[in-house]
Amino acid sequence: MTFEMILVIIVITLMLAGLFFEMARPDLLVFFTLFFFIMTDIVSTDEALVGFSNEGMLTVGLLFIVAGAFERSGLVERLVSSMLAKANTRQGAMFRLLVPISGFSDFLNNTPIVVTLTPIVRKWASENNISPFKFLLPLSYAAILGGTITLMGTSTNLVIHGLLLDFGEKGFNFFELAWVGVPITFIGLVYLIVVGHRFLPDHKSLIEKVREKNTKDYLSEIQPWNRQRFFSERCD
């Protein structure tokens, strides 16, 4: 084993430890590791930047922009609220939420879907005195399961598709993975709606805990610092 191999193993291990213990932002840790490899000539500049031209990664970035536009428009919040408003039971609300989300994940990447819907679902759960823990994890799993049906459903499918094209292979068709993804999604949704939520904690959100304590409201005011007034009061 050469010195470079040992150095790469050590640096990658430190990066993974930093990600696990959340010592810094993930993007900073990953880019610092890449910068270290470039500076030590372990990785050339061309090799370091080749990933940014990957078709799958660029598609994921564009889908984040699309999801952000939907979130800012308020359309997603109104749609989710209308779906959940007609639910009479917790399982009914979960059915109305998870099934459409798995369908949306077929055509939009699951990562921006979860990022967009997480604050909306948390807000709805707090307003209806329901533990958000019962919905957030099934929300993520439903998006992942639905994303296995099509090519652009998950970033993993897009990245592998881009790598196949880079090596001169044909790549995936849009619905080529559906014969595996559809039954997996159906079985997974049935489990999440019928059984899975029973194993999740029923903790209340932080807002509900504060409300139950009947805490008083405190009003504070921040004023700009007046240097002359400060020293005059000190002298008095």
Rank of each mutant, 00 (worst) to 15 (best):
G51R: 01
P224F: 09
L14P: 04
G162H: 04
M57G: 06
H161N: 12
N226S: 08
Y141R: 01
L84R: 05
I9P: 00
N128D: 12
S131N: 13
I144L: 15
G56Y: 08
C235F: 14
E22K: 12
F20W: 09
M94G: 00
F133K: 11
V210I: 11
R229W: 06
T118L: 14
L151N: 05
E55W: 02
S102W: 01
I9K: 06
A85S: 15
G103M: 15
T33P: 02
M83L: 15
T33E: 03
N110M: 13
F64C: 09
K213Y: 08
D41A: 05
I184H: 02
F104C: 15
F36P: 05
L63A: 09
G146A: 02
I193K: 01
S205E: 03
G74E: 08
F174V: 11
L29F: 02
T156F: 08
Q223C: 06
K216C: 04
L108P: 04
A67T: 03
L177Y: 00
M57D: 01
K123Y: 09
M15D: 03
L28T: 11
N129Q: 13
N88W: 03
P183W: 05
G153R: 07
E47Q: 14
F199Q: 06
L136T: 15
T2F: 09
L189H: 00
S155M: 10
Y191E: 06
F230Q: 08
I38G: 01
T59R: 08
V60W: 03
A87E: 12
T118Y: 04
N173L: 08
V190L: 10
G74H: 10
V114E: 11
G18I: 02
F231N: 05
F174R: 07
W124P: 09
V8P: 03
V76T: 14
G162M: 11
T148P: 09
F70H: 04
S131R: 14
C235W: 11
E212F: 05
M83G: 12
L165N: 11
L151D: 00
V30T: 10
V30A: 15
G168V: 07
R96W: 09
P100G: 12
Q223E: 07
S102Q: 14
L49H: 07
T59D: 03
L28N: 08
P201N: 05
G92W: 14
R198G: 05
K204M: 06
L165R: 12
I222W: 08
I193W: 00
K123T: 15
T148D: 04
G188A: 10
D41F: 04
L189S: 01
L145A: 12
G61A: 14
E47G: 10
S140V: 05
S53G: 13
L164M: 13
F133S: 12
V180A: 10
K123S: 14
T154G: 10
A178K: 06
R227Q: 15
F167S: 10
A69N: 06
T118R: 01
N110W: 11
V115C: 11
L75H: 07
C235N: 12
F95M: 13
T33Y: 03
F186D: 01
K204F: 04
F95G: 00
G51H: 04
T148K: 10
T185L: 03
E208N: 12
T118W: 00
F133D: 12
T45A: 10
